[in-house]
């Protein structure tokens, strides 16, 4: 019996570690965007490198969890939902890492007077991913808290969309910028915005999965 609980505890720990990596990834992203906008390129590259390593670790951990859930035939009635949640939340982390990588590859010419909006955009998008993680943790332990966390994700996503729209309008209303420059900045705003969109998609799945968990 003790062995049964030890095995379950081990996977429980791995799921928590995986969710910790998403939180850590979000924090690295926020720092990375700050350093990029402040022109501190070395620190930015260091954060990007940490984030890419972390993303790989998260992928490995997710595969390990999935394999164990299948091999040990654990949580049979919820396994599909759990695997779906892990895969989609991993996609959110991938999106975070890919977006920061784009800053390094494409080196967008950001506008200093819009930096505050850029910070806000990144913060709100990461808020959505952090609340998504809270909602997933609640799904495993405390179903009654899932709804509250999902609501927070929805709020953060709406806020992100609002900031992104304001940012894009601001950029496109400027007559002194090339169209290619405007499109490039819009592309970055859109990428950051889609982090929150993906977090919300995960929560939509989560809401349905939570209903199935009520006995």
């Amino acid at each position: 019996m003790a062995q049964l609980f030890t095995k379950h505890k081990q996977i429980e720990g791995e799921i928590d570690d995986f969710l910790d990596l998403i939180i850590e990834g979000g924090l690295l992203f926020k720092k990375g965007v700050h350093f990029y906008l402040d022109g501190r390129s070395e620190e930015f590259e260091a954060r990007l490198s940490d984030l890419r390593r972390l993303e790989k670790d998260a992928d490995k951990l997710r595969r390990s969890i999935e394999t164990k859930l299948y091999l040990r035939t654990l949580i049979p009635e919820f396994r599909g939902d759990v695997l779906g949640l892990l895969e989609h939340s991993d996609a959110v982390l991938n999106k975070i890492a890919d977006t920061l990588l784009l800053f390094s590859v494409e080196i967008p010419e950001t506008l200093e007077d819009l930096n505050e909006s850029h910070y806000d955009l990144a913060h709100n998008a990461i808020d959505a991913s952090e609340n998504m993680v809270k909602a997933i943790r609640a799904y495993f332990r405390d179903l009654s808290a899932v709804r509250d966390n999902v609501k927070q994700v929805q709020f953060s996503r709406e806020e992100t969309n609002r900031i992104a729209e304001k940012y894009k309008r601001d950029v496109f209303q400027r007559t002194n910028l090339r169209l290619s420059h405007k499109i490039h900045l819009r592309y970055f705003a859109h990428n950051i915005e889609s982090i929150a969109d993906e977090a919300e998609d995960v929560c939509d799945r989560l809401s349905i999965a939570a209903i199935k968990r009520y006995i």
């Binding site: 049964l4 609980f5 379950h8």
Partner: peptide, 25 residues
């Protein structure tokens, strides 16, 4: 039994995987 289980499990805050182990037992 269902009402009892729902009341207990609603407040217990047991991790899904721990619940899985208890359910097996």
């Amino acid at each position: 039994l269902y009402l009892l289980a729902r009341r207990f499990l609603g407040n217990a805050r047991i991790h899904m995987l721990q619940m899985d182990a208890w359910t097996r037992i």
